Simulated assay, not measured.
Amino acid sequence: MDDFLGIYLRDQLAMGVLWRELARRAQRNNRGTELGDVLDGVATAIAEDVETFRSIMDRVGARANPVKTGLAFGAERLGRLKRNGRLTSYSPLSRFEELEFLAMGIDGKKQLWTTLRDLAGLGARLPDIDFDHLIDRAARQRADLEPFRARAGTEAFTRATAGGSSGAAPRGARPR
């Protein structure tokens, strides 16, 4: 296997672990809401994608780098310590940033599947992997999150500019 492909795959696995953990955290933070339900599906799909990706790595002879994946796992945990405008509770900014970062990760995952299919030539080497399905699934995940991401941004920044903070969830993220 090409050294560059191996490095790329190990880096992408680390990022996948980071996005998986972020999706799980976002789902827990929004449990019992419409957004929480969407995030449950997204988190499950991202976890499945990480396992699919691990399988691809095994099949092309790329071994995971436990240091890189451990650092990604740790980075997600450290990300929880960032300031969010509230000392001890979940804030509208937290929700928006989680959704914004997840959207970036899903866009990156879509690009990853395209790169593996086309540029790395794995589509031809692994004909049983349906890269087009994986690309479409990422696009659906992104589309599912988008209305919530947009609303969360409006909610966070409208409050920030108005100087108020009621603690209410954005529309579409209401508890049932």
Rank of each mutant, 00 (worst) to 15 (best):
R59P: 02
K110H: 09
A173M: 10
D37W: 04
F96I: 01
Q141R: 11
Q12K: 15
G61C: 10
A75N: 06
K82N: 04
L99F: 00
A45C: 03
R174I: 03
E98Q: 08
W19Y: 08
S89D: 15
L9M: 15
S89T: 13
L22V: 03
P147D: 05
V60A: 08
A139Y: 00
L22M: 12
K110N: 13
M1K: 10
T52H: 08
H133P: 02
A14P: 13
F96Y: 09
A160Q: 02
G172F: 14
G6F: 07
T88V: 12
G79D: 15
Y90P: 04
A156N: 12
R149D: 11
T52A: 08
G163K: 01
S89L: 12
D144E: 13
P170S: 01
A103N: 15
A26C: 05
R63A: 09
D2R: 14
Q27A: 14
F157E: 01
T114D: 15
I7D: 11
R142W: 05
S55H: 13
L93H: 10
L112G: 02
I106H: 00
A26Q: 01
S165G: 13
G167K: 07
G85P: 08
G153Q: 03
A150H: 09
D130V: 04
F73D: 09
G164A: 03
R20S: 14
G172L: 12
R171L: 13
R174Y: 04
G153Y: 08
Q12M: 14
